[in-house]
Amino acid sequence: MLVVHYRELPVDAPEAHALLDAYFTERIATFPDPVGYKTAFPDASLFTPPHGVFVVVDLSDDERGFACGGVRRIRDGAAGKVQYEIKHLFVAPSGRGRGLGKALLGELERRARAFGATEAVLDTNDSLTAAGGLYRASGYATIEPYNDNPNATHWYAKPLL
């Protein structure tokens, strides 16, 4: 059985920055229009409790940095839903096929609930077919766009009960 360890890091810490750089590099290389993909490293203050958190996935003390992702507070949704957005969910190639994406998504949802979220939202691009499948299989439903992310083609939400 795979044992996963979650480690909070400032989103601007060197290790977090390296994972995000790998994520952005892969997205640019695989994006339908690489010239059109916009990258921006996240504002660290938005991923600092209680506004949010950034997490890195380790498998052991010697096997570190296999995946990353963050959750951050955004404006309230319809009917006063307290929304947290899941951002930059990335599993490095060496960690793929182990269920780390699903495990990390669940951990980010758990942390959002602990902050008081009643709904998780996220956006993705059609070219990320595995990500879209993960989100749908995890109970996310398609919603109208909640942001103007130029890289996104689909927006999702999930109640956090």
Results as ranks from 00 to 15, higher is better:
R113S: 04
R113H: 05
R113T: 05
A114K: 11
A114N: 15
A114P: 15
F115R: 01
F115G: 13
F115M: 10
F115W: 05
G116K: 10
G116P: 14
A117V: 12
A117Q: 10
A117L: 12
A117H: 08
T118W: 07
T118I: 14
T118E: 08
T118C: 11
E119N: 08
E119L: 08
E119W: 03
E119C: 14
V121R: 03
V121F: 03
L122N: 02
L122F: 02
D123F: 02
T124I: 05
T124F: 01
T124G: 01
T124P: 03
N125T: 06
N125C: 12
D126W: 01
D126E: 05
S127W: 12
S127K: 06
S127V: 04
L128V: 09
L128Y: 00
T129S: 10
T129C: 09
A130I: 07
A130K: 06
A130P: 12
A130N: 13
A131N: 04
A131G: 09
A131H: 04
G132S: 01
G132K: 05
G132M: 04
G133H: 01
G133K: 04
Y135D: 02
R136N: 10
A137R: 08
A137C: 06
A137G: 12
A137T: 09
S138V: 10
S138I: 11
Y140S: 12
Y140L: 15
Y140R: 05
A141C: 07
A141F: 14
T142S: 12
T142F: 01
T142N: 12
I143F: 00
I143S: 02
I143E: 04
I143W: 06
E144V: 15
E144Q: 00
P145A: 00
P145Y: 07
P145T: 02
Y146L: 05
Y146W: 01
Y146K: 04
Y146P: 08
N147V: 05
N147L: 14
N147R: 09
D148Y: 15
D148C: 11
N149Y: 03
N149F: 10
N149M: 05
P150S: 11
P150F: 01
P150C: 12
P150I: 09
P150N: 10
N151H: 07
N151C: 07
N151S: 02
A152M: 13
A152V: 00
A152K: 02
T153Q: 00
H154Y: 08
H154C: 06
W155D: 01
W155G: 06
W155E: 01
Y156F: 03
A157M: 09
A157C: 15
A157S: 13
K158M: 09
